[in-house]
């Protein structure tokens, strides 16, 4: 028996908005530790990894591991029936072929009860090696969303360059080119600030497809800040924390010079 109750139901709604356009369906693995889901887009350029730890939920029970094979368009349609301040409960039997979703309104005068049919998804799980990142950059998530949107008007590639105390985003194309530089700001504890941490002082610069970065920024509402981790010739990691007990992470393969 699996049952998980999320007081902040909006977390699930927002997570689905950040997932459904990249991966059409996925296995949501439920264990005593929490719920995790990972999947790649069809062209194997971006990997999406969702982690919702058990203490994100105010009630969490998972007697035996349960796999919920979910179609994300359907799941999203059902979640759209939930208000942002609804309490959402997920329930499933062992070896389930359906999942029960319960939405309770904040003032408890409305409850909605949905059953979603599960699908068999044979999806290999990828091992993500630990990587020493040359640079870890934190920027306000809305700022990053705006930069990706603005620069993608110039072309299909966005170059992210990090050097001491500064991160630069640039794009070039037929109409011209653009470069946006963010300086590390003073007190980095405030959510609205920029922080740039470098492993060594060697600058690094990588190119990425702007289309995917714009998919990732659909998760912006999950967190005030977004973390970018770069390492030469390695995938970019774009992370949105979900409170202190969860995250939605994206791994994007770089564009390699000829």
């Amino acid at each position: 028996m699996f049952e998980a109750r999320l007081l902040q139901g909006s977390i699930l709604k927002k997570a689905l908005e950040g997932i459904r356009e990249l991966i059409t369906s996925g296995n949501w693995e439920c264990s005593s530790a929490g719920i995790s889901m990972q999947g790649m887009d069809p062209s194997h350029v971006a990997l999406t990894v969702l982690m919702l730890q058990n203490d994100l939920f105010d009630q969490f029970r998972c007697d035996r591991n349960v796999t919920l094979g979910l179609n994300h368009a359907t799941f999203s349609k059902i979640l759209k029936c939930a208000a942002n301040d609804d309490i959402i409960t997920l329930k499933a039997e062992d070896q389930p072929d359906e999942c029960n979703l319960l939405f309770q309104s904040a003032n408890d005068d409305k409850t909605s009860d949905f059953i979603i049919k599960l699908t068999d998804i044979d999806q290999e799980t990828l091992g993500i090696p630990d990587t020493e990142y040359a640079a870890t950059v934190k920027v306000p998530s809305v700022e990053f969303q705006r930069i990706c949107r603005d620069l993608s008007q110039f072309g299909d590639t966005i170059i992210i360059s990090v050097k001491k105390g500064c991160v630069e985003f640039s794009g070039t194309g037929e109409i011209g080119s653009a470069k946006i530089a963010l300086k590390e700001s003073g007190n980095v504890d405030d959510d609205e600030k920029v922080s740039v941490e470098m492993d060594k002082d060697t600058p690094c610069s990588l190119s990425f497809a702007s289309r995917y970065l714009n998919y990732f920024t659909k998760a912006t509402s999950l967190s005030d800040t977004v973390t970018l981790q770069l390492c030469p010739e390695h995938p970019l990691v774009v992370s949105y924390d979900i409170g202190d007990n969860g995250s939605l992470k994206y791994y994007l393969a770089p564009k390699i010079e000829e």
Partner: peptide, 14 residues
């Protein structure tokens, strides 16, 4: 800006 690489060259299937 070069060609798009694939994650398959970075991540191993478990």
């Amino acid at each position: 800006h070069g060609h798009q690489s694939s994650l398959d060259s970075f991540f191993r299937k478990k």
